[in-house]
Amino acid sequence: MPSETPQAEVGPTGCPHRSGPHSAKGSLEKGSPEDKEAKEPLWIRPDAPSRCTWQLGRPASESPHHHTAPAKSPKILPDILKKIGDTPMVRINKIGKKFGLKCELLAKCEFFNAGGSVKDRISLRMIEDAERDGTLKPGDTIIEPTSGNTGIGLALAAAVRGYRCIIVMPEKMSSEKVDVLRALGAEIVRTPTNARFDSPESHVGVAWRLKNEIPNSHILDQYRNASNPLAHYDTTADEILQQCDGKLDMLVASVGTGGTITGIARKLKEKCPGCRIIGVDPEGSILAEPEELNQTEQTTYEVEGIGYDFIPTVLDRTVVDKWFKSNDEEAFTFARMLIAQEGLLCGGSAGSTVAVAVKAAQELQEGQRCVVILPDSVRNYMTKFLSDRWMLQKGFLKEEDLTEKKPWWWHLRVQELGLSAPLTVLPTITCGHTIEILREKGFDQAPVVDEAGVILGMVTLGNMLSSLLAGKVQPSDQVGKVIYKQFKQIRLTDTLGRLSHILEMDHFALVV
């Protein structure tokens, strides 16, 4: 994948999101292997301009796509893939009243899908469409860049269908997702969380590099694949309309690839034109409109599966009536509230959605109805927002919020430890010299600072030695090549209790 991002070429006709291997024109390309080798690009942008032909009021008969309808489940399912879809609609009884809503608040519980998330729908649909058009064949390999849930859905379907599955996901995604993927037989590649989507090191860039190296491999490409919004247009939206008897006044959905909100909203605009569509985008993402909503100094966020630093091709923002931004604290607070007060075992993005819903639905009156999409299960986040310690460490809970008995030293300040200034190293000294210094002084790690004293990161003896043994660096290389740029900081005025929580999850903390 090139470091400079080429513009994806656009073909003359058809839909841009065809499933299957992508040609340089962004659509299915038939021909000899030699032709494909000559024409197939190194990668295709996940934010390529959409060429979708959908228009409100256009006859369904003019759609270029294969459409399906929700099917009634048999008493005995032939395999677990038949437990994807037909998820329950559940009334939220307490939270709406707590925040003064007059309307009825309903939750579409997508964590009841077989793999635990709304992404099971698009995973199965992308595979079925690729099999139907002859792209996927027995023994082929599926590769997908994902925040985890699409990966789980694909790995689940691949396990049943017999495909090899490789999932490329950023490091910030939970260990629970990784464990589930491994249990399903998927191979996992992790990428830096802070890598831009168009960087060769991003999950998108690495996935395309693997595709170019592995024979008979395919990126189904949830960011561009029409099967993504079509899955929701054909099934999720129809289920909502049936469950609500066609009567709903507002739908609120958090947005990642945009397939969920695009597919549902398009069908609702056709069948229930008075329904307002509300999009939820986390602070630090750029999906919301108008652009002024996205202006923030924050560039990272903890909530998973929603928000991006690019506009995915499948996201149709014209069908969203209003956007709201959400933050991590309210997302996790509301997710825990949904679990504790409503018994809905949902993930953090569901918290984002409901946090926005109780604001947006203030305009609705008694007798009206708001539906929220709860995308995934708490299963993926047992060591994250479900953990009091994690919430404390991230600053989303305060010590006084917890009532468990603490040891005698818990409320003492870090400054009472009488710490001395640490050994520091410059980023320009060599790895070999740094190892000598650390061994001589008896230290395992040291902060790396520039000549102005600005902290650049941390270097550890173990990481340097393993990097040297693996051949990633040489003793003569500058130590700046092996620094940890993500590390926890703590102030002298913070409590030892807070430091204790940090050290339970990290090997060190830097006192500043």
Results as ranks from 00 to 15, higher is better:
Tyr223His: 02
Val118Ile: 04
Pro2Gly: 11
Leu154Pro: 05
Asp129Thr: 07
Ile143Leu: 07
Gln242Ser: 06
Cys103Ser: 02
Pro215Asp: 09
Glu171Gly: 05
Gly14Leu: 11
Glu9Lys: 12
Gln242Leu: 11
Glu4Tyr: 10
Ser217Met: 02
Arg182Met: 02
Lys267Trp: 07
Val160Thr: 02
Leu105Trp: 02
Trp208Met: 08
Glu176Arg: 04
Asn225Val: 02
Ala155Glu: 02
Glu34Val: 08
Val255Cys: 11
Pro6Val: 04
Ser73Phe: 12
Gly246Leu: 05
Ile261Leu: 07
Thr141Ala: 12
Leu105Val: 12
Arg196Asn: 10
Arg266Ser: 02
Glu9Arg: 08
Gly274Ala: 15
Ala107Cys: 12
Glu40Ser: 14
Lys39Leu: 13
Asp198Cys: 10
Glu4Leu: 09
Asp35Pro: 09
Arg224Asp: 02
Leu210Ser: 02
Gln7Asn: 15
Asp249Trp: 02
Thr235Cys: 10
Ile127His: 02
Arg132Thr: 14
Pro88Val: 02
Pro138Gly: 12
Arg58Phe: 02
Lys25Gly: 08
Ile127Cys: 02
Pro192His: 15
Asn113Arg: 02
Cys165Thr: 06
Cys272Met: 15
Pro192Asp: 10
His203Ala: 09
Thr135Phe: 09
Lys172Tyr: 02
Leu101Trp: 02
Ile127Gly: 02
Lys75Gly: 14
Ala183His: 10
Gly31Lys: 15
Ala130Cys: 07
Thr262Ala: 12
Leu248Val: 15
Ala231Phe: 02
Met89Pro: 07
Glu201Ala: 02
Met169Ser: 02
Val10Met: 12
Val206Arg: 04
Val90Ile: 05
Arg209His: 02
Glu144His: 02
Val90Tyr: 05
Thr262Asn: 07
Leu181Arg: 02
His17Glu: 08
Pro192Ser: 10
Gly20Arg: 10
Pro49His: 15
Lys267Ala: 13
Ala69Ile: 02
Leu77Cys: 08
Ala8Ser: 02
Leu56Ser: 12
Asp129Leu: 05
Val189Ile: 07
Glu104Ala: 10
Val160Ile: 06
Arg132Ser: 14
Asp245Ser: 09
Val160Lys: 02
Ile264Tyr: 04
Gln242Tyr: 08
Ala237Gly: 11
Asp120Arg: 04
Glu176Phe: 02
Gly274Val: 02
Ala157Lys: 06
Thr262Gly: 07
Arg91Cys: 02
Leu230Thr: 12
Leu154Ser: 06
Asn212Ser: 12
Lys25Phe: 08
Glu110Cys: 02
Lys247Cys: 14
Pro215Met: 09
Ala253Pro: 05
Ser175Pro: 05
Arg132Asp: 15
Gly263Ile: 02
Cys103Arg: 02
Glu34Ala: 05
Ser147Thr: 02
Gln242Ile: 14
Glu110Gly: 02
Ile122Asn: 09
Glu4Pro: 10
Lys39Trp: 11
Pro49Val: 09
Arg161Ser: 14
His65Glu: 05
Thr235Leu: 10
Gly139His: 12
Ser174Val: 04
Lys98Ser: 12
Thr257Phe: 04
Lys94Leu: 10
Trp43Cys: 11
Ile143Phe: 06
His17Asn: 05
Ile92Val: 12
Leu136Glu: 02
Leu154Phe: 14
Thr257Ser: 07
Asp133Ala: 02
Gly205Ala: 02
Glu213Leu: 07
Arg58Ser: 02
Ser27Trp: 12
Thr257Pro: 06
Leu230Asn: 06
Lys108Val: 05
Leu81Glu: 15
